[in-house]
C-alpha cells in the first residue's frame, strides 16, 4: 500500500461515452504542495470531486487520510477543506457570519467559531471587511474569504480548485504566498489545480500534468524536465563572434569540434547566428571556456532551463498526437 495521504488507484470517471478521468494513479505525500496542472476540461475538477466523495467514480478507488472517499465521504470531508473554483457565499450575510455558519456545520460551538473566524479573517487580511456583506466583496477578497472558510475546520488537507482564476497578478502572488505560508505553518497538505504554469511552478513541490483525463507525468520540475528531455535536459544558447552565419565553414567545423569535446554535450545545432547546445548536465562554464580558449569571442550565453512552459508545450505537441490516445 502507498504511504501518501491521498492515494488514487485506477480512478476512472465516465460520462456516457466520454471518459473524463482515465485510470488515474496518483499519490500525494503528507505536507507537500502538489499542483495538478492541465488545460480546461482535462478532468481536474472531476478528480477533485471524486476525492471528496461529491461524485462517484466509475472505477478505481480514492483513499484520503486512509479513508475511502466514496463510501465514507463525511469522514473525509471532516479532514479536507475544499475551495471550489468561483466560490460563492451567502451574499446577504457578512463575511464573518459566513465563516461562523461553516464552522457550525463542522460542529464547532458558536463562541469558538466566532473567535476562530475572527483570527482567520485577520490572517487572510480581511479584518476590516469582517462585518461587510459578502455580496460586496471583490473577487480577490472572496477568494481570501474562501481560504479562511476552508481553514476554519482545521483541515489536514486543503484542496484548491483553480484558486487564482480571475485575480490580478499582484493578488495572485499574495494569495499563493499566503497558501504556502499557511501550509508550512500548519503542516498542511495542499493540492491545487491550475492551468497557469507559472503560478504552479512558483509554489508547488511537485506537479502532475493532466491531459485528457490522464496523468502524463509527475514529479518536481527538474525531474519532470529530465523525464521529458531525457537526452538534453539542459540547453545552452550561444552566440559567438565572428557570427555563426558569417564565419567560414572551416571556423564552423572548429567551433563544433571544440564544443563537442566538452564532456556532457550531446547535440549542437546551428540556426541563424545562434548555436543551441544540448547537454546532459549543466556545462555552461565548460562550454564558454572552450569557446574562448579556441579564439572565439563569446558574446551571449543563455543557460536555458526547461520550465513548465516547455514541459507543457512539449506535452501538448506529443499529447495531442499520441499521448492521450495511447
Amino acid at each position: 500500500m502507498g504511504s501518501g495521504i491521498i492515494e488514487l488507484r485506477g480512478l476512472t470517471k465516465r460520462y456516457g461515452t466520454f471518459l473524463a478521468v482515465d485510470r488515474l494513479d496518483l499519490s500525494v505525500n503528507k505536507g507537500e504542495v502538489f499542483g495538478l496542472l492541465g488545460p480546461n476540461g482535462a478532468g481536474k475538477s472531476t478528480t477533485i470531486l471524486m476525492m471528496l466523495g461529491l461524485t462517484e467514480p466509475s472505477g478505481g478507488s480514492v483513499s484520503v487520510c486512509g479513508i475511502d472517499a466514496t463510501s465514507n465521504p463525511v469522514e473525509v470531508k471532516k479532514r479536507v477543506g475544499y475551495l471550489p473554483d468561483d466560490v460563492g457565499f451567502y451574499e446577504d450575510y457578512s463575511g464573518l457570519d459566513n465563516l461562523i455558519y461553516t464552522a457550525r456545520l463542522n460542529r464547532i460551538s458558536r463562541e469558538e467559531a466566532e473567535s476562530r473566524a475572527l483570527s482567520l479573517l485577520k490572517r487572510v487580511g480581511l479584518s476590516d471587511a469582517a462585518s461587510k456583506k459578502a455580496g460586496k466583496y471583490s473577487r480577490g477578497m472572496r477568494q481570501r474569504l474562501g481560504l479562511a472558510d476552508v481553514l476554519i475546520k482545521n483541515p489536514e488537507i486543503i484542496i484548491l480548485d483553480e484558486p487564482t482564476l480571475g485575480i490580478d497578478p499582484q493578488g495572485v502572488r499574495e494569495f499563493l504566498d499566503l497558501i504556502v505560508k499557511l501550509s508550512r505553518e500548519e503542516q498542511l497538505t495542499v493540492l491545487l489545480s491550475s492551468h497557469h504554469l507559472h503560478q504552479v511552478q512558483q509554489v508547488c513541490d511537485r506537479v502532475g500534468i493532466f491531459v485528457g483525463g490522464r496523468l502524463l507525468a509527475m514529479g518536481d520540475i527538474p525531474t519532470l524536465s529530465h523525464q521529458l528531455f531525457n537526452k538534453d535536459s539542459f540547453a545552452l544558447t550561444v552566440k559567438v563572434k565572428p557570427a555563426a552565419v558569417t564565419c567560414t565553414e572551416n571556423e564552423k567545423q572548429k567551433l563544433k569540434a571544440v564544443i563537442s569535446a566538452v564532456p556532457g554535450v550531446t547535440t549542437i545545432e546551428f540556426s541563424g547566428d545562434t548555436i543551441t547546445i544540448g547537454c546532459t548536465s549543466d556545462a555552461a562554464a565548460d562550454v564558454s571556456r572552450a569557446i574562448v580558449n579556441a579564439g572565439f569571442d563569446l558574446i551571449y550565453l543563455n543557460n536555458k532551463e526547461f520550465g513548465l512552459d516547455e514541459i507543457y508545450q512539449r506535452y501538448f505537441e506529443a499529447g495531442g498526437a499520441s499521448g492521450i490516445r495511447k
Partner: peptide
C-alpha cells in the same frame, strides 16, 4: 447559482 452549494456539500454533512 450563488456557488454556495458546492461549498456547503463539501462540509462534513450528508
Amino acid at each position: 447559482n450563488r456557488g454556495t452549494l458546492s461549498r456547503i456539500t463539501s462540509q462534513p454533512i450528508h
